[in-house]
Design a binder for these strands. Structure first.
Lengths: 133, 133
DNA sequence: CCGTATCCTGTGGGATACTG
DNA sequence: CAGTATCCCACAGGATACGG
């Protein structure tokens, strides 16, 4: 982590916190990461993206894409054809996020069962928490 | 649940998607990642956590911690003293998330300026998007 | 000191219908 | 096909006040 950066008077912990908050506000929503992961291989059309990202509404897909385009993570290419065709793909910047998305996916697949188990245990019995808040 | 079993009828892409959605629903909120990152070194008391996680309200810190405890990512240890003392720390499972948080932090610090620049450009001029949706 | 309870607001996000 | 517009609800999350 860039401790070398001349942070002047700002402690690195604070800068890190702000940065994490920023990135979470941007890609921590319900669909951004999923869209980026879906586009990791090659560009897709709107409809393809809609199908691939099962469960997303047109509205949210549009909004998500707009935000990602504004942030410079995704490109939008409209072909002047009939019927109209639009393709979305990752920018170089967007591609730098792909490893993180994949890491997140791997972590999730590796541990979500364990998490669900632990959660269920708490929900039902609360068998092992004597000092329950 | 037998990951060794080849995904029967379910394509791996789908499982991955579901897992990503799940993990994002759990740690993709406003404070969870931040709390985990803050606890990465050693356990902290409630008040310390509140100060370290600048901007969090008591309510949200409580709720966030409860969810993390339920999911088995964080431990809560209450010492029967006067005045009362409570310490929160990461479980082994929680610790497996730390590298991801750090990676996210590094990505954010490396690219947030570029993102902000791109966003500003779009907000003001929209100088380079002829076919604006 | 460590929370919980209550109230209140903004907004994320779904459903649906319409346009170019 | 690729969106936009509108309505509406649920809930994340802040402020404040109170309990153990």
């Amino acid at each position: 982590m860039a401790e070398v950066t001349p942070g002047a008077g700002v402690p690195p912990r604070i800068r890190e916190r702000g940065a994490v908050r920023e990135v979470l506000d941007r890609v921590g929503d319900k669909w951004s990461m999923l869209v980026i992961g879906t586009l990791r291989a090659d560009p897709l059309r709107f409809g393809e993206l809609e199908q691939a990202t099962a469960g997303v509404s047109q509205r949210m897909l549009t909004l998500t894409l707009r935000r990602l385009i504004e942030d410079g993570l995704v490109t939008r290419t409209a072909f002047a054809e009939v019927p109209p065709r639009v393709e979305y793909g990752l920018t170089d910047l967007g591609r730098t996020l792909v490893p993180l998305v994949m890491a997140l996916a791997e972590w999730a697949m590796a541990h979500h069962e364990q998490i669900n188990a632990h959660r269920s245990r708490h929900r039902s019995g609360t068998a092992d928490a004597p000092s329950r808040p």
